[in-house]
């Protein structure tokens, strides 16, 4: 990978040729803000360590950083952590694929046809505002308490942003573009998938990003309801045994995965939106 940023902040004098490419540390000027950003976390970590070391708060309320680290090692060594992460991720992927796909179709319908949008909207606007978790009691009665429940609730969460964004993206495709399709005699399917969707891609993708974020948030909630594995289950389990280090560990892992999803999608989004 070539560094495209160097020209902006700290360009080389024209005489200097190859300076060794970035070692492990960023340049001092870029290091400073990073260090400043670490001050507060360091202070918080210190306060946390001190609190637990001095026994100001019982470990059942706030275990120390050391025990969280121990919990991490333990679960990592036994392979359990990997299992929980895998279980959670596979639910998210399944639910997202289902809900996202449905949302995409719905969004295309609403975006392409005004009539369709007027027909769908009354129910859609209402359904969008139903908190996914509120569907749990209903779905428990209908499909039981197993995987289907979790996947369906996650799917509901992922569906809404995708439908909203796709509809908006498709609606905003310049009319001239669609006319190009008509001039060349494209079939409706070809017009939608070959012309309209690519043009709407940046907007649709921001729906993908929001949808995946919502799916992830909702998954954690769903796993609190009833599961035998997954990160949410790990939290419930740790909470019930009053071993809060497992709860805190799950919180950190959940945040890290959320962060990774967000970052990854951000990168892709920046590429997709580049033509705009």
């Amino acid at each position: 990978m070539t560094s495209t940023t160097s020209a902006v902040d700290l360009p080389l004098p024209s005489g200097a040729v190859a300076r060794p490419r970035r070692l492990f540390l960023p340049h001092p000027r870029r290091l400073l803000p990073v260090l400043e950003g670490l001050v507060l976390p360091a202070v918080l970590l210190g306060a946390w360590a001190l609190t637990s070391h001095q026994g100001w708060l019982p470990a059942q309320i706030l275990p120390g950083p050391g025990s969280v680290l121990d919990a991490f090692r333990e679960l990592l060594a036994s392979g359990e952590l990997g299992d929980h992460i895998r279980a959670s991720l596979s639910r998210v992927i399944l639910g997202f694929a289902l809900g996202g796909g449905l949302g995409l179709l719905l969004g295309v319908a609403m975006g392409v046809s005004r009539a369709a949008s007027e027909i769908i909207e009354p129910v859609f606007v209402w359904f969008a505002q139903v908190p996914p978790i509120a569907l749990a009691p209903l779905l428990i009665l209908l499909v039981g308490i197993d995987e289907a429940l979790k996947v369906l609730i996650v799917a509901k969460a992922a569906m809404i942003p995708l439908a909203v964004n796709t509809a908006e993206g498709v609606r905003n495709v310049p009319r001239q573009w669609r006319e190009v399709g008509r001039v060349f005699g494209f079939s409706p399917a070809r017009t939608v998938f070959g012309l309209v969707l690519p043009a709407a891609l940046p907007t649709v993708f921001s729906g993908v990003r929001t949808g995946l974020t919502h799916a992830w948030l909702t998954l954690v909630a769903v796993e609190l309801i009833a599961s035998t594995e997954g990160l949410g289950y790990l939290m419930v389990w740790g909470r019930q045994l009053f071993q809060l280090e497992f709860v805190l560990l799950s919180v950190v892992v959940i945040a890290l995965i959320g962060f990774a999803l967000d970052r990854g999608l951000n990168r892709i989004e920046a590429r997709i939106g580049a033509w705009r």
Partner: peptide, 25 residues
């Protein structure tokens, strides 16, 4: 610069992950 990165990390925590902790705290 001082607080931004900490907030950015905080916001990554899925909101429902707080439930077991808040109930206790």
């Amino acid at each position: 610069r001082l607080v931004g990165p900490t907030f950015d990390s905080f916001k990554q925590i899925a909101i429902f992950a707080w439930i077991p902790l808040f109930g206790l705290w």
